[in-house]
Amino acid sequence: MPLANTSTSVPVIVDEDKCIADKGCTVCVDVCPLDVLRISELTGKAYMKFDECWYCMPCEADCPTGAVTVNIPYLLK
Protein backbone atom coordinates (compact mmCIF):
# COMPACT_ATOMS: atom_id res chain seq x y z
CA MET A 1 0.00 0.00 0.00
CA PRO A 2 1.55 3.33 -0.98
CA LEU A 3 1.94 6.00 1.72
CA ALA A 4 0.56 9.55 1.80
CA ASN A 5 1.74 12.60 3.71
CA THR A 6 -1.15 13.99 5.73
CA SER A 7 -0.55 17.33 7.41
CA THR A 8 -1.23 17.94 11.10
CA SER A 9 -0.90 21.06 13.26
CA VAL A 10 1.65 20.44 16.03
CA PRO A 11 1.35 21.65 19.63
CA VAL A 12 4.98 22.60 20.35
CA ILE A 13 6.17 25.97 19.01
CA VAL A 14 9.78 27.18 18.99
CA ASP A 15 10.65 30.89 18.82
CA GLU A 16 13.54 30.80 16.36
CA ASP A 17 14.89 34.16 17.50
CA LYS A 18 15.37 32.81 21.01
CA CYS A 19 16.38 29.20 20.15
CA ILE A 20 20.13 28.60 20.44
CA ALA A 21 20.19 25.11 18.90
CA ASP A 22 22.49 26.48 16.18
CA LYS A 23 25.04 27.14 18.95
CA GLY A 24 24.92 23.50 19.99
CA CYS A 25 22.04 23.43 22.49
CA THR A 26 19.94 20.22 22.38
CA VAL A 27 18.16 20.44 25.76
CA CYS A 28 14.57 20.21 24.49
CA VAL A 29 15.42 17.33 22.15
CA ASP A 30 17.20 15.52 25.00
CA VAL A 31 14.48 15.75 27.63
CA CYS A 32 11.37 14.91 25.58
CA PRO A 33 9.92 11.58 26.84
CA LEU A 34 8.32 10.91 23.44
CA ASP A 35 11.41 12.01 21.47
CA VAL A 36 9.43 14.15 19.05
CA LEU A 37 11.69 17.21 18.71
CA ARG A 38 14.60 17.59 16.30
CA ILE A 39 17.05 20.26 15.16
CA SER A 40 16.30 21.37 11.62
CA GLU A 41 19.21 20.88 9.22
CA LEU A 42 17.85 23.82 7.24
CA THR A 43 17.51 26.45 9.98
CA GLY A 44 19.64 25.01 12.78
CA LYS A 45 16.69 25.54 15.16
CA ALA A 46 14.61 23.08 17.15
CA TYR A 47 11.19 22.06 15.85
CA MET A 48 8.53 19.46 16.46
CA LYS A 49 9.04 16.74 13.90
CA PHE A 50 6.50 14.17 15.11
CA ASP A 51 2.95 14.96 16.27
CA GLU A 52 3.15 12.58 19.23
CA CYS A 53 2.93 14.94 22.22
CA TRP A 54 1.88 14.26 25.82
CA TYR A 55 1.94 18.06 26.51
CA CYS A 56 4.02 17.28 29.60
CA MET A 57 6.29 20.35 29.23
CA PRO A 58 9.90 19.37 30.09
CA CYS A 59 10.94 20.91 26.74
CA GLU A 60 9.45 24.26 27.77
CA ALA A 61 10.52 24.08 31.43
CA ASP A 62 14.13 23.13 30.69
CA CYS A 63 14.78 25.41 27.68
CA PRO A 64 17.54 27.81 28.79
CA THR A 65 16.25 30.74 26.70
CA GLY A 66 12.47 30.34 27.02
CA ALA A 67 12.12 29.61 23.30
CA VAL A 68 9.71 26.68 23.59
CA THR A 69 5.93 26.87 24.11
CA VAL A 70 3.75 23.82 24.60
CA ASN A 71 0.16 24.20 23.45
CA ILE A 72 -2.66 21.75 23.93
CA PRO A 73 -2.99 19.50 20.84
CA TYR A 74 -5.91 20.64 18.69
CA LEU A 75 -7.90 17.41 19.06
CA LEU A 76 -8.08 17.93 22.83
CA LYS A 77 -8.37 21.63 23.39
Partner: peptide, 13 residues
Amino acid sequence: TSGYLFGTYENAA
Protein backbone atom coordinates in the same frame (compact mmCIF):
# COMPACT_ATOMS: atom_id res chain seq x y z
CA THR B 1 -12.09 9.96 23.74
CA SER B 2 -10.25 12.83 21.99
CA GLY B 3 -8.95 10.29 19.45
CA TYR B 4 -5.41 11.68 19.91
CA LEU B 5 -3.12 8.64 20.23
CA PHE B 6 -0.82 10.32 22.73
CA GLY B 7 -3.50 12.08 24.80
CA THR B 8 -3.51 9.27 27.36
CA TYR B 9 -3.94 9.34 31.12
CA GLU B 10 -0.52 7.69 31.59
CA ASN B 11 2.68 9.13 30.17
CA ALA B 12 2.28 8.02 26.57
CA ALA B 13 5.84 6.67 26.54
